[in-house]
């Protein structure tokens, strides 16, 4: 569905250089710190910016060449951009209705009511949670086959985040052909949703792995410096030393569970993986 081949985009002081492949029916997560390149990547996918080198393909074509009909199949939620703040839900409904052939007005109204979004207030008077929910509801309002969600849960409290994730899960359940590219810096949201994760840092992909493998095979091992000396380091991906111990990231925790039963071995969450890969030594 989406293919980015050595896609490069340069700005002052920043260079994006990534290769990415999202097949149909996949939920792919893009994780990285603020400024790492998530939004730039998404803008390249959507054709909002032009790459300086390399190619981007969506539905097999350059995103800038997609026809209006093809663009109908894409649902978008951007983190800092949406409908005019002066609009009310009624305005939004009228514009969506005129823009998308498959806009399902009744379902959209029902979902807005279910999320307690006020129909007669201007968007500028919405709370940030409501604004975020509206953006996601708009993205899924027209039966899009491909959803591109840029930080849909940023800045929200845990309940609001869960509400949005639930909305997304339900959308996926309705049609197994739907695909999603979702970017976030909240990895716990992505762990329970995405099939695979791309970690991006400083414009580059530093890790791409199935979530299943990340959670199943990666692990954290905690030990003393002495124990680290004698450790078989074949499957150690990164390490971090602090005053009292050494923490290692491994991509084969079973190996260490079996051979070093005395060491403290924990499941690694994506946050741990990021911290160690970016902060630790390799």
């Amino acid at each position: 569905m989406i293919r980015l081949n050595n896609l490069q985009k340069e700005y002052k002081g920043f260079k994006l250089d990534i290769t990415m492949d999202v097949p149909e029916g996949r939920v792919t997560g893009l994780i990285g710190r603020n400024g790492a390149g998530k939004t730039t990547t998404i803008k390249c996918i959507l054709g909002l910016v032009r790459p300086t080198a390399g190619e981007a393909e969506v539905f097999g074509r350059n995103p800038l060449d997609l026809t209006s009909d093809e663009r109908q199949m894409i649902g978008v939620a951007l983190s800092e951009s949406g409908f005019s703040m002066l609009f009310t839900l009624e305005d939004v409904i009228k514009v969506l209705s005129a823009s998308y052939k498959d806009f399902d007005e009744k379902r959209f109204r029902d979902m807005c009511s279910a999320q307690s979004l006020p129909f007669d207030k201007q968007i500028k008077d919405y709370s940030s949670g409501m604004k975020a929910k509206l953006r996601v509801l708009v993205a899924i309002s027209h039966n899009a086959k491909l959803l591109i969600l840029d930080e849909p849960t940023a800045g929200l409290d845990v309940i609001a985040r869960n509400d949005i994730l639930a909305i997304i899960r339900k959308y996926l359940d309705e049609n197994p052909e739907r695909s999603i590219v979702i970017s976030s810096h909240i990895s716990s949201d992505l762990e329970g949703l995405c099939d695979d994760i791309y970690m991006i840092s400083d414009g580059k992909i530093i890790l791409h792995e199935d979530t299943d493998v990340l959670l199943g095979k990666y692990g954290l091992i905690k030990m003393s410096s002495e124990e680290f000396e004698t450790l078989d380091k074949r499957y150690i991906v990164a390490k971090q030393e602090d005053r009292f111990s050494v923490t290692c990231l491994t991509s084969e925790k079973q190996f260490y569970v079996e051979n070093y039963p005395k060491l403290v071995i924990e499941n690694a969450h994506i946050d741990d993986i990021i911290v160690l890969m970016l902060g630790g030594e390799k």
Binding site: R169, D173, D210, T211, D212
Partner: peptide, 18 residues
């Protein structure tokens, strides 16, 4: 269905498929 179970358990669909 794969997606249904994945959604309920909050795990990735690929895991369920596996």
């Amino acid at each position: 269905s794969v997606r249904n179970l994945a959604g309920e358990l909050r795990i990735s669909a690929l895991t369920v498929k596996k």
